[in-house]
Design a protein around this nucleic acid. Structure first.
Lengths: 221, 221
DNA sequence: CGTCAGAATATTGTATACAAAATATTAAGT
DNA sequence: ACTTAATATTTTGTATACAATATTCTGACG
């Protein structure tokens, strides 16, 4: 993506994530152009890109609107993700190199060290390690197409917004899953890896549901 | 998509499919604008859309190039598709309404009638019926996101180009799979549907491989 | 003969101006 | 007061002009 377009994408995405534009809001090109300090042309490019990421939806001749997400949508995403990532894990078990495995193992150890240090949890470290772990696993799976599909799913606003409040136990379990995945992949056991990864993502879904529970939604009058 | 953009997308996509632009070819915006009879602005829009469909890839500041596909890529697509469509079939078994099932059954019967008519095979009827059958099944699965992902996979040039030479036996088997899928879904048996759909897509992959075999590729000097 | 530098050209990226379409506003009629 | 039609305004869509970048060509030099 080119300079001005890229700038616009970043600014607009951030604003949506921060709630500056509410779900359903109508994004006007000229206004965005002013905010981003570029002309309408790259703004339009940016909106097309954000539509591809499902941040907005474009209705021809009517405009661009911030996407709205139902609980069903979110469940959909997690279930699809669990399937796709599990498939990736199976492939990784067949194809991972020693380097891939070492990288993953290192990330597991780094997080483990953080958790058992006695100090408070450092989410920064966890998130970075988690990201690296999954990226490496996808790379090991060796399917660019799969990687792209998954990336699109998890780059979506709902998931991106999910700066979930992980409890210490959640982090612990997550990292245990990671450790087990390394074991399964080392053993070249695709079914095992598949199964652990499924649990891993569904557990994340559970954490999400616990936090963003429909029961907790308040309706103001 | 708006008028001029839509026109450009259709023209350019067709030209790529027809081989007017070879894989790897550099598509120049001005030239396309002239061919399509619109300005560069909607052409650029069109190229972004075609990139999303994987017909082309865009390299910033360098241009747009017709996508190239390896055998590995194609295998990747079929395998992913088999997984995703199988997942859809499982969902459909859980959620399909009587109307969905009736529509699917009707398409099966229409193709069956064509095949057993004694006359030669009518590919038009088969392709239309096949399309309708799968669309209905995806609708029955009730996941817009899944539908979108699958659509993107199968709208890709490699698959689109696959006007495969189905033999009569291939068509017969394909329709038997369809019939079995209707049975499985009627019985609300998700595992059965999943399994039949997997076979169905992998069989299609086999037909593809039989036709577009690397062995047959000639290299001119 | 090759290679490197620099100018010339071609191509993409961005801004602006204009056209088409949709939305909002006003005014008239019931 | 409520519709409805006409008009004004806003917003998106397209074309063109200009700027930035990349590519190609040319010629000097080793």
């Amino acid at each position: 993506m080119s300079k001005a377009t890229n700038k616009a994408v970043k600014i607009i995405r951030k604003m949506i994530l921060e709630g500056v534009f509410a779900p359903g809001a109508h994004l006007k090109e000229e206004e965005l152009a002013k905010v981003c300090g570029v002309s309408r042309t790259p703004v339009r490019d940016a909106l097309r890109a954000l539509a591809a990421e499902d941040y907005v939806r474009i209705i021809p001749n009517h405009g661009t609107f911030v996407s709205e997400w139902s609980g069903q949508d979110i469940a959909d995403i997690f279930l699809l993700r669990s399937m796709l990532e599990a498939y990736g894990a199976r492939l990784a078990a067949q194809k991972a190199t020693k380097e891939h495995i070492n990288t993953m193992r290192k990330e597991v150890e780094r997080i483990d060290k953080m958790l058992s240090s006695g100090k408070g949890v450092d989410l920064e470290i966890f998130l970075a390690g988690n990201k690296k772990f999954h990226e490496t696993l996808r790379e090991a799976a060796g399917s660019d197409r799969l990687t792209k599909i998954i990336s699109r799913l998890i780059s979506q606003p709902v998931v991106a917004r999910t700066a979930i409040s992980y409890t210490r136990d959640d982090l612990q379990r997550s990292n245990e899953h990671h450790a087990e995945l390394v074991e399964a992949i080392s053993a070249k056991d695709g079914e095992w890896a598949h199964s652990v990864m499924t649990s891993h993502i569904l557990a994340a879904f559970q954490v999400y549901k616990r936090h963003y529970n429909p029961d907790q939604v308040e309706i103001s009058d």
